[in-house]
Nucleic acid binder design. Structure first.
Lengths: 223, 223
DNA sequence: CCGAAATCTTACGAATTCCTTACGCGCCGG
DNA sequence: CCGGCGCGTAAGGAATTCGTAAGATTTCGG
Protein backbone atom coordinates (compact mmCIF):
# COMPACT_ATOMS: atom_id res chain seq x y z
CA UNK A 1 0.00 0.00 0.00
CA UNK A 2 1.74 3.12 -1.21
CA UNK A 3 1.83 6.20 0.90
CA UNK A 4 -0.20 9.15 -0.29
CA UNK A 5 1.55 12.32 -1.31
CA UNK A 6 -0.08 15.63 -2.11
CA UNK A 7 1.80 17.66 -4.71
CA UNK A 8 0.93 21.34 -4.90
CA UNK A 9 2.68 22.64 -7.99
CA UNK A 10 1.43 24.94 -10.74
CA UNK A 11 4.18 24.24 -13.25
CA UNK A 12 2.74 21.69 -15.65
CA UNK A 13 5.97 20.12 -16.73
CA UNK A 14 7.62 19.91 -13.34
CA UNK A 15 4.42 18.72 -11.71
CA UNK A 16 3.95 15.94 -14.23
CA UNK A 17 7.54 14.92 -13.80
CA UNK A 18 7.25 14.74 -10.03
CA UNK A 19 4.00 12.86 -10.12
CA UNK A 20 5.39 10.31 -12.50
CA UNK A 21 8.50 9.71 -10.44
CA UNK A 22 6.52 9.34 -7.29
CA UNK A 23 4.29 6.80 -8.99
CA UNK A 24 7.30 4.88 -10.19
CA UNK A 25 8.62 4.85 -6.64
CA UNK A 26 5.41 3.26 -5.43
CA UNK A 27 3.69 6.27 -3.93
CA UNK A 28 0.19 7.54 -4.65
CA UNK A 29 0.46 11.18 -5.57
CA UNK A 30 -2.39 13.65 -5.84
CA UNK A 31 -1.69 16.74 -7.88
CA UNK A 32 -3.13 20.13 -7.15
CA UNK A 33 -2.23 22.54 -9.90
CA UNK A 34 -2.99 25.61 -7.88
CA UNK A 35 -2.63 26.79 -4.34
CA UNK A 36 -5.66 26.88 -2.10
CA UNK A 37 -6.05 27.99 1.44
CA UNK A 38 -6.13 24.90 3.55
CA UNK A 39 -8.35 23.96 6.43
CA UNK A 40 -8.93 20.83 8.38
CA UNK A 41 -11.72 19.96 5.99
CA UNK A 42 -10.07 20.67 2.67
CA UNK A 43 -6.83 18.88 3.37
CA UNK A 44 -7.11 15.36 2.04
CA UNK A 45 -5.78 12.48 4.05
CA UNK A 46 -2.17 12.29 2.91
CA UNK A 47 1.11 11.19 4.42
CA UNK A 48 3.24 13.97 3.02
CA UNK A 49 2.87 17.25 1.15
CA UNK A 50 5.17 18.59 -1.55
CA UNK A 51 4.51 22.29 -1.66
CA UNK A 52 5.79 24.78 -4.20
CA UNK A 53 6.16 28.18 -2.60
CA UNK A 54 5.88 30.14 -5.82
CA UNK A 55 2.28 29.76 -6.78
CA UNK A 56 0.11 32.23 -8.62
CA UNK A 57 -2.45 33.75 -6.33
CA UNK A 58 -1.81 32.37 -2.89
CA UNK A 59 1.60 32.70 -1.38
CA UNK A 60 2.91 29.29 -0.50
CA UNK A 61 4.23 30.40 2.83
CA UNK A 62 0.69 31.19 3.90
CA UNK A 63 -0.50 27.76 2.90
CA UNK A 64 2.20 26.28 5.05
CA UNK A 65 1.28 28.47 7.96
CA UNK A 66 -2.38 27.53 7.67
CA UNK A 67 -1.52 23.91 7.44
CA UNK A 68 0.52 23.80 10.59
CA UNK A 69 -2.36 25.07 12.64
CA UNK A 70 -4.21 21.82 12.37
CA UNK A 71 -1.88 19.25 10.87
CA UNK A 72 1.53 17.80 11.50
CA UNK A 73 1.85 16.18 8.11
CA UNK A 74 5.43 16.33 6.80
CA UNK A 75 5.96 19.10 4.25
CA UNK A 76 8.68 19.25 1.65
CA UNK A 77 8.96 22.73 0.25
CA UNK A 78 10.06 23.60 -3.28
CA UNK A 79 11.20 27.05 -4.26
CA UNK A 80 13.10 28.86 -6.94
CA UNK A 81 14.56 31.15 -4.34
CA UNK A 82 17.90 29.98 -3.06
CA UNK A 83 17.87 32.37 -0.15
CA UNK A 84 18.81 31.43 3.38
CA UNK A 85 16.26 33.78 4.90
CA UNK A 86 13.51 32.07 2.96
CA UNK A 87 14.71 28.64 3.87
CA UNK A 88 14.91 29.52 7.53
CA UNK A 89 11.44 30.97 7.43
CA UNK A 90 9.91 27.94 5.82
CA UNK A 91 11.66 25.54 8.18
CA UNK A 92 10.62 27.63 11.16
CA UNK A 93 7.04 27.51 9.95
CA UNK A 94 7.21 23.76 10.21
CA UNK A 95 8.50 22.60 6.86
CA UNK A 96 10.53 19.42 7.03
CA UNK A 97 12.71 20.04 4.02
CA UNK A 98 13.43 22.73 1.47
CA UNK A 99 14.62 22.08 -2.05
CA UNK A 100 15.82 24.75 -4.42
CA UNK A 101 14.95 24.60 -8.08
CA UNK A 102 16.23 23.35 -10.32
CA UNK A 103 16.72 19.85 -8.98
CA UNK A 104 16.62 16.33 -10.27
CA UNK A 105 13.46 14.44 -9.52
CA UNK A 106 15.49 11.51 -8.21
CA UNK A 107 16.62 13.65 -5.35
CA UNK A 108 13.09 14.72 -4.59
CA UNK A 109 11.93 11.14 -4.46
CA UNK A 110 14.78 10.22 -2.13
CA UNK A 111 14.01 13.10 0.15
CA UNK A 112 10.37 12.07 0.22
CA UNK A 113 11.45 8.58 1.08
CA UNK A 114 13.76 9.86 3.78
CA UNK A 115 10.88 11.71 5.42
CA UNK A 116 8.42 8.88 5.15
CA UNK A 117 10.63 6.26 6.69
CA UNK A 118 10.52 8.28 9.86
CA UNK A 119 7.36 8.27 11.89
CA UNK A 120 5.23 11.34 11.56
CA UNK A 121 4.11 11.55 15.12
CA UNK A 122 0.58 10.34 14.49
CA UNK A 123 -1.07 13.65 14.03
CA UNK A 124 -1.30 14.68 17.65
CA UNK A 125 -2.82 17.86 16.50
CA UNK A 126 -0.97 20.86 17.70
CA UNK A 127 -2.53 24.24 18.09
CA UNK A 128 -0.42 27.33 18.18
CA UNK A 129 -1.82 30.66 19.18
CA UNK A 130 0.72 33.39 19.49
CA UNK A 131 3.46 32.16 21.78
CA UNK A 132 1.22 29.45 23.15
CA UNK A 133 1.54 25.90 21.91
CA UNK A 134 -0.87 23.17 22.79
CA UNK A 135 -0.11 19.58 21.91
CA UNK A 136 -3.17 17.43 22.37
CA UNK A 137 -1.39 14.17 21.70
CA UNK A 138 1.30 14.64 24.27
CA UNK A 139 -0.92 16.67 26.50
CA UNK A 140 1.77 19.25 26.68
CA UNK A 141 1.61 22.99 26.72
CA UNK A 142 4.42 25.42 26.24
CA UNK A 143 4.71 29.19 26.22
CA UNK A 144 7.53 30.71 24.23
CA UNK A 145 9.07 27.27 24.01
CA UNK A 146 9.00 26.61 27.73
CA UNK A 147 7.06 23.70 29.10
CA UNK A 148 4.19 24.50 31.39
CA UNK A 149 2.80 21.78 33.60
CA UNK A 150 -0.96 21.76 33.74
CA UNK A 151 -3.36 19.63 35.67
CA UNK A 152 -5.92 17.57 33.86
CA UNK A 153 -8.73 20.07 34.18
CA UNK A 154 -6.56 23.00 33.30
CA UNK A 155 -5.48 21.24 30.17
CA UNK A 156 -9.00 20.22 29.23
CA UNK A 157 -10.14 23.76 29.68
CA UNK A 158 -7.38 25.17 27.53
CA UNK A 159 -7.88 22.51 24.89
CA UNK A 160 -11.57 23.31 24.74
CA UNK A 161 -10.84 26.97 24.14
CA UNK A 162 -8.15 26.12 21.63
CA UNK A 163 -10.62 24.35 19.41
CA UNK A 164 -11.80 27.71 18.23
CA UNK A 165 -9.02 30.19 18.89
CA UNK A 166 -10.35 33.67 19.23
CA UNK A 167 -13.94 32.64 19.57
CA UNK A 168 -15.77 33.13 22.80
CA UNK A 169 -17.25 30.16 24.58
CA UNK A 170 -19.89 30.41 27.23
CA UNK A 171 -19.11 29.48 30.77
CA UNK A 172 -21.86 26.92 30.85
CA UNK A 173 -20.69 25.07 27.77
CA UNK A 174 -17.16 25.07 29.07
CA UNK A 175 -18.27 23.82 32.44
CA UNK A 176 -20.33 21.13 30.82
CA UNK A 177 -17.46 19.98 28.73
CA UNK A 178 -14.65 20.21 31.22
CA UNK A 179 -16.13 19.42 34.58
CA UNK A 180 -16.99 15.91 35.59
CA UNK A 181 -20.74 15.67 36.25
CA UNK A 182 -20.04 13.14 38.99
CA UNK A 183 -17.70 15.31 40.95
CA UNK A 184 -20.25 18.04 41.37
CA UNK A 185 -18.57 21.23 40.34
CA UNK A 186 -20.31 24.54 40.30
CA UNK A 187 -19.63 27.20 37.75
CA UNK A 188 -17.71 29.02 40.41
CA UNK A 189 -15.22 26.24 40.13
CA UNK A 190 -14.34 27.36 36.66
CA UNK A 191 -13.17 30.70 37.94
CA UNK A 192 -10.68 28.99 40.10
CA UNK A 193 -9.28 26.88 37.37
CA UNK A 194 -9.06 29.82 35.04
CA UNK A 195 -7.24 31.72 37.67
CA UNK A 196 -4.74 28.97 38.23
CA UNK A 197 -4.34 28.49 34.52
CA UNK A 198 -3.58 32.14 33.93
CA UNK A 199 -1.03 32.17 36.66
CA UNK A 200 0.75 29.22 35.10
CA UNK A 201 0.65 30.59 31.58
CA UNK A 202 2.18 33.79 32.81
CA UNK A 203 1.36 37.28 31.77
CA UNK A 204 0.04 38.00 28.34
CA UNK A 205 -3.25 36.54 29.49
CA UNK A 206 -4.06 34.07 26.76
CA UNK A 207 -7.33 33.31 28.43
CA UNK A 208 -9.39 36.42 27.97
CA UNK A 209 -12.63 37.16 29.75
CA UNK A 210 -15.66 37.98 27.70
CA UNK A 211 -17.73 39.73 30.22
CA UNK A 212 -21.15 38.25 30.78
CA UNK A 213 -20.47 35.43 28.33
CA UNK A 214 -17.45 33.35 29.10
CA UNK A 215 -13.90 33.06 27.84
CA UNK A 216 -11.85 33.22 24.71
CA UNK A 217 -8.37 32.20 23.68
CA UNK A 218 -6.35 35.22 22.62
CA UNK A 219 -2.87 35.35 21.26
CA UNK A 220 -1.66 37.09 24.37
CA UNK A 221 -0.32 40.00 22.46
CA UNK A 222 -2.76 42.78 21.76
CA UNK A 223 -5.25 44.33 24.19
CA UNK B 1 17.39 19.52 28.46
CA UNK B 2 19.11 20.43 25.21
CA UNK B 3 19.36 17.70 22.64
CA UNK B 4 22.80 16.30 21.96
CA UNK B 5 24.30 16.63 18.50
CA UNK B 6 27.47 14.97 17.25
CA UNK B 7 29.32 17.05 14.66
CA UNK B 8 31.86 15.18 12.56
CA UNK B 9 33.73 17.84 10.62
CA UNK B 10 37.42 18.26 9.95
CA UNK B 11 37.32 21.86 8.78
CA UNK B 12 38.31 23.95 11.79
CA UNK B 13 36.53 27.10 10.82
CA UNK B 14 33.31 25.54 9.64
CA UNK B 15 33.21 23.15 12.58
CA UNK B 16 33.66 25.92 15.11
CA UNK B 17 30.98 27.93 13.39
CA UNK B 18 28.52 25.07 13.47
CA UNK B 19 29.23 24.20 17.08
CA UNK B 20 28.75 27.76 18.16
CA UNK B 21 25.45 28.11 16.37
CA UNK B 22 24.15 24.89 17.77
CA UNK B 23 25.06 26.02 21.26
CA UNK B 24 23.29 29.30 20.72
CA UNK B 25 20.24 27.39 19.63
CA UNK B 26 20.21 25.46 22.89
CA UNK B 27 21.70 22.21 21.71
CA UNK B 28 24.66 20.38 23.19
CA UNK B 29 27.10 19.69 20.38
CA UNK B 30 30.08 17.35 20.53
CA UNK B 31 32.75 17.97 17.92
CA UNK B 32 34.82 15.22 16.36
CA UNK B 33 37.48 16.73 14.18
CA UNK B 34 38.15 13.54 12.31
CA UNK B 35 36.21 10.64 11.00
CA UNK B 36 36.32 7.35 12.85
CA UNK B 37 34.75 4.06 12.09
CA UNK B 38 31.71 3.77 14.27
CA UNK B 39 30.42 0.87 16.29
CA UNK B 40 27.72 0.46 18.85
CA UNK B 41 30.28 1.14 21.54
CA UNK B 42 32.06 4.15 20.08
CA UNK B 43 28.95 6.08 19.13
CA UNK B 44 28.13 8.41 21.96
CA UNK B 45 24.59 8.89 23.09
CA UNK B 46 23.37 11.63 20.78
CA UNK B 47 20.07 12.66 19.25
CA UNK B 48 21.42 13.64 15.86
CA UNK B 49 24.63 13.43 13.85
CA UNK B 50 25.96 16.09 11.50
CA UNK B 51 28.36 14.25 9.23
CA UNK B 52 30.73 15.75 6.72
CA UNK B 53 31.29 13.33 3.87
CA UNK B 54 34.65 14.72 2.82
CA UNK B 55 36.92 13.71 5.62
CA UNK B 56 40.59 12.89 5.37
CA UNK B 57 41.19 9.21 5.83
CA UNK B 58 37.81 7.63 6.23
CA UNK B 59 35.23 8.13 3.56
CA UNK B 60 32.16 9.64 5.11
CA UNK B 61 29.82 7.39 3.20
CA UNK B 62 31.34 4.41 4.99
CA UNK B 63 30.80 5.98 8.36
CA UNK B 64 27.17 6.44 7.48
CA UNK B 65 26.87 2.86 6.31
CA UNK B 66 28.45 1.57 9.50
CA UNK B 67 26.22 3.72 11.59
CA UNK B 68 23.01 2.50 10.08
CA UNK B 69 23.83 -1.05 10.97
CA UNK B 70 23.21 -0.47 14.63
CA UNK B 71 21.62 2.95 15.06
CA UNK B 72 18.63 4.83 13.77
CA UNK B 73 19.88 8.19 14.91
CA UNK B 74 19.01 10.97 12.43
CA UNK B 75 21.93 11.98 10.25
CA UNK B 76 22.37 15.28 8.44
CA UNK B 77 25.03 15.00 5.79
CA UNK B 78 27.29 17.82 4.63
CA UNK B 79 29.20 17.70 1.40
CA UNK B 80 30.99 19.91 -1.05
CA UNK B 81 29.72 17.79 -3.90
CA UNK B 82 26.51 19.10 -5.37
CA UNK B 83 25.86 15.97 -7.29
CA UNK B 84 22.51 14.27 -7.48
CA UNK B 85 24.03 10.81 -7.57
CA UNK B 86 25.84 11.50 -4.32
CA UNK B 87 22.77 12.91 -2.67
CA UNK B 88 20.69 9.96 -3.71
CA UNK B 89 23.32 7.58 -2.42
CA UNK B 90 23.57 9.24 0.96
CA UNK B 91 19.81 9.43 1.36
CA UNK B 92 19.46 5.79 0.33
CA UNK B 93 22.03 4.85 2.93
CA UNK B 94 19.79 6.31 5.55
CA UNK B 95 20.76 9.95 5.76
CA UNK B 96 17.89 12.22 6.70
CA UNK B 97 19.14 15.33 4.98
CA UNK B 98 21.91 16.47 2.68
CA UNK B 99 23.31 19.97 2.59
CA UNK B 100 25.70 21.22 -0.02
CA UNK B 101 28.55 23.53 0.91
CA UNK B 102 28.73 26.37 1.11
CA UNK B 103 25.71 27.12 3.27
CA UNK B 104 24.76 29.50 6.00
CA UNK B 105 24.85 28.06 9.50
CA UNK B 106 21.37 29.39 10.19
CA UNK B 107 20.02 26.99 7.65
CA UNK B 108 21.87 24.12 9.21
CA UNK B 109 20.46 24.90 12.61
CA UNK B 110 16.95 25.06 11.20
CA UNK B 111 17.36 21.76 9.47
CA UNK B 112 18.62 20.21 12.66
CA UNK B 113 15.63 21.60 14.44
CA UNK B 114 13.31 20.30 11.75
CA UNK B 115 14.68 16.77 12.21
CA UNK B 116 14.58 16.84 15.98
CA UNK B 117 11.02 18.01 16.28
CA UNK B 118 10.00 14.75 14.72
CA UNK B 119 10.09 11.59 16.78
CA UNK B 120 13.00 9.31 16.09
CA UNK B 121 11.17 6.03 15.90
CA UNK B 122 13.26 4.32 13.30
CA UNK B 123 12.05 2.25 10.49
CA UNK B 124 11.92 -1.38 11.18
CA UNK B 125 11.43 -2.57 14.66
CA UNK B 126 13.83 -0.43 16.57
CA UNK B 127 12.77 2.56 18.58
CA UNK B 128 15.20 4.97 20.13
CA UNK B 129 14.13 7.57 22.58
CA UNK B 130 16.96 9.39 24.24
CA UNK B 131 19.26 6.81 25.75
CA UNK B 132 16.61 4.15 25.58
CA UNK B 133 16.63 1.62 22.80
CA UNK B 134 13.85 -0.82 22.19
CA UNK B 135 14.23 -3.61 19.69
CA UNK B 136 10.84 -5.10 19.04
CA UNK B 137 12.17 -7.79 16.78
CA UNK B 138 14.65 -9.18 19.24
CA UNK B 139 12.60 -8.19 22.25
CA UNK B 140 15.60 -6.44 23.67
CA UNK B 141 15.89 -3.23 25.57
CA UNK B 142 18.99 -1.30 26.44
CA UNK B 143 19.73 1.94 28.23
CA UNK B 144 22.87 3.80 27.30
CA UNK B 145 24.03 0.70 25.49
CA UNK B 146 23.53 -1.61 28.44
CA UNK B 147 21.12 -4.48 28.18
CA UNK B 148 18.18 -4.49 30.51
CA UNK B 149 16.27 -7.69 31.10
CA UNK B 150 12.54 -7.22 31.14
CA UNK B 151 9.73 -9.62 31.76
CA UNK B 152 7.14 -10.18 29.10
CA UNK B 153 4.63 -7.74 30.50
CA UNK B 154 7.19 -5.10 31.18
CA UNK B 155 8.33 -5.32 27.61
CA UNK B 156 4.82 -5.25 26.22
CA UNK B 157 4.08 -2.19 28.22
CA UNK B 158 7.18 -0.39 27.08
CA UNK B 159 6.63 -1.40 23.48
CA UNK B 160 3.10 -0.09 23.60
CA UNK B 161 4.30 3.27 24.81
CA UNK B 162 7.10 3.28 22.27
CA UNK B 163 4.67 3.09 19.42
CA UNK B 164 4.01 6.75 19.91
CA UNK B 165 6.98 8.22 21.69
CA UNK B 166 6.01 11.25 23.65
CA UNK B 167 2.31 10.79 23.34
CA UNK B 168 0.22 10.16 26.35
CA UNK B 169 -1.71 6.92 26.48
CA UNK B 170 -4.55 6.27 28.85
CA UNK B 171 -4.20 3.71 31.56
CA UNK B 172 -7.24 1.86 30.33
CA UNK B 173 -6.00 1.48 26.78
CA UNK B 174 -2.65 0.32 28.06
CA UNK B 175 -4.23 -2.13 30.43
CA UNK B 176 -6.45 -3.43 27.68
CA UNK B 177 -3.55 -3.94 25.38
CA UNK B 178 -1.00 -5.32 27.77
CA UNK B 179 -2.87 -7.29 30.37
CA UNK B 180 -4.28 -10.69 29.63
CA UNK B 181 -8.08 -10.55 29.97
CA UNK B 182 -8.05 -14.12 31.30
CA UNK B 183 -5.72 -13.49 34.15
CA UNK B 184 -7.93 -10.68 35.28
CA UNK B 185 -5.66 -7.87 36.20
CA UNK B 186 -6.97 -4.70 37.67
CA UNK B 187 -5.67 -1.32 36.65
CA UNK B 188 -3.79 -1.27 39.91
CA UNK B 189 -1.69 -3.99 38.43
CA UNK B 190 -0.33 -1.56 35.93
CA UNK B 191 1.09 0.59 38.67
CA UNK B 192 3.11 -2.28 39.89
CA UNK B 193 4.55 -3.14 36.52
CA UNK B 194 5.36 0.47 35.86
CA UNK B 195 7.08 0.66 39.17
CA UNK B 196 9.18 -2.40 38.46
CA UNK B 197 9.89 -1.19 34.96
CA UNK B 198 11.13 2.15 36.15
CA UNK B 199 13.37 0.53 38.66
CA UNK B 200 14.96 -1.56 35.96
CA UNK B 201 15.36 1.26 33.49
CA UNK B 202 17.11 3.27 36.11
CA UNK B 203 16.82 6.95 36.78
CA UNK B 204 15.86 9.40 34.12
CA UNK B 205 12.33 8.08 34.34
CA UNK B 206 11.58 7.28 30.75
CA UNK B 207 8.08 6.31 31.71
CA UNK B 208 6.46 9.55 32.68
CA UNK B 209 3.12 9.67 34.33
CA UNK B 210 0.48 11.98 32.97
CA UNK B 211 -1.63 12.65 35.96
CA UNK B 212 -5.23 11.63 35.64
CA UNK B 213 -4.63 10.19 32.17
CA UNK B 214 -1.96 7.56 31.99
CA UNK B 215 1.62 7.34 30.88
CA UNK B 216 3.98 8.65 28.26
CA UNK B 217 7.40 7.70 26.97
CA UNK B 218 9.81 10.57 27.56
CA UNK B 219 13.43 10.87 26.62
CA UNK B 220 14.45 10.64 30.22
CA UNK B 221 16.50 13.75 30.14
CA UNK B 222 14.53 16.92 30.62
CA UNK B 223 12.83 18.08 33.79
C1' DC C 1 -19.59 58.42 41.35
C1' DC C 2 -22.51 54.45 43.26
C1' DG C 3 -24.26 49.95 43.80
C1' DA C 4 -25.06 45.51 42.12
C1' DA C 5 -23.52 41.81 39.59
C1' DA C 6 -19.87 39.33 37.69
C1' DT C 7 -15.40 37.77 38.05
C1' DC C 8 -10.77 37.10 40.35
C1' DT C 9 -7.79 35.39 43.84
C1' DT C 10 -6.27 32.93 47.76
C1' DA C 11 -6.10 29.45 51.22
C1' DC C 12 -7.19 25.04 52.90
C1' DG C 13 -9.26 20.45 53.64
C1' DA C 14 -10.75 16.48 51.31
C1' DA C 15 -10.64 13.32 47.73
C1' DT C 16 -8.43 11.23 44.07
C1' DT C 17 -4.64 9.15 41.96
C1' DC C 18 -0.42 7.10 42.03
C1' DC C 19 3.89 4.70 44.06
C1' DT C 20 6.05 1.30 46.64
C1' DT C 21 6.69 -2.64 49.34
C1' DA C 22 5.52 -7.02 50.83
C1' DC C 23 3.35 -11.25 50.08
C1' DG C 24 1.17 -15.41 47.88
C1' DC C 25 0.15 -18.17 44.02
C1' DG C 26 1.26 -20.95 40.08
C1' DC C 27 4.40 -22.52 36.56
C1' DC C 28 8.59 -24.46 35.11
C1' DG C 29 13.32 -26.62 35.10
C1' DG C 30 16.50 -29.06 37.82
C1' DC D 1 10.19 -31.80 45.55
C1' DC D 2 12.54 -27.50 45.63
C1' DG D 3 13.76 -22.93 44.17
C1' DG D 4 13.46 -19.27 40.96
C1' DC D 5 10.70 -16.37 38.35
C1' DG D 6 6.79 -13.94 36.56
C1' DC D 7 2.57 -12.17 37.89
C1' DG D 8 -1.45 -10.40 40.60
C1' DT D 9 -3.25 -8.41 45.05
C1' DA D 10 -3.38 -5.80 49.02
C1' DA D 11 -2.29 -1.93 51.86
C1' DG D 12 0.03 2.08 53.60
C1' DG D 13 1.70 6.28 52.35
C1' DA D 14 3.08 10.04 49.32
C1' DA D 15 1.90 13.28 45.89
C1' DT D 16 -1.27 15.88 43.32
C1' DT D 17 -5.51 17.75 42.24
C1' DC D 18 -10.04 19.52 43.02
C1' DG D 19 -13.94 22.01 45.15
C1' DT D 20 -15.61 25.47 48.37
C1' DA D 21 -15.78 29.41 50.93
C1' DA D 22 -14.81 34.11 51.51
C1' DG D 23 -12.98 38.41 50.64
C1' DA D 24 -10.97 41.48 46.91
C1' DT D 25 -11.46 43.43 42.45
C1' DT D 26 -13.47 44.71 38.18
C1' DT D 27 -17.28 45.89 35.09
C1' DC D 28 -21.54 47.86 33.83
C1' DG D 29 -25.68 50.68 34.00
C1' DG D 30 -27.37 54.85 35.50
Amino acid sequence: MGKKVLVIEDDQELGAQIVKRLCDAGYEPTWWKEGRRLSRETLPDVDLVVLDLMLPGTYGMDILKDLRVFSEVPVLVLSARNDTADKVRALRLGADDYMTKPFWPEELVERVRARLRRPTLGRGDVVEVGALRIDRGRREVSVRGERVELTRLEFEFLAALAERPGEAMTRSSLAERVLDPERDGTERTLDVHVSRLRKKLGRGAFVETVWGIGYRLGDGRDE
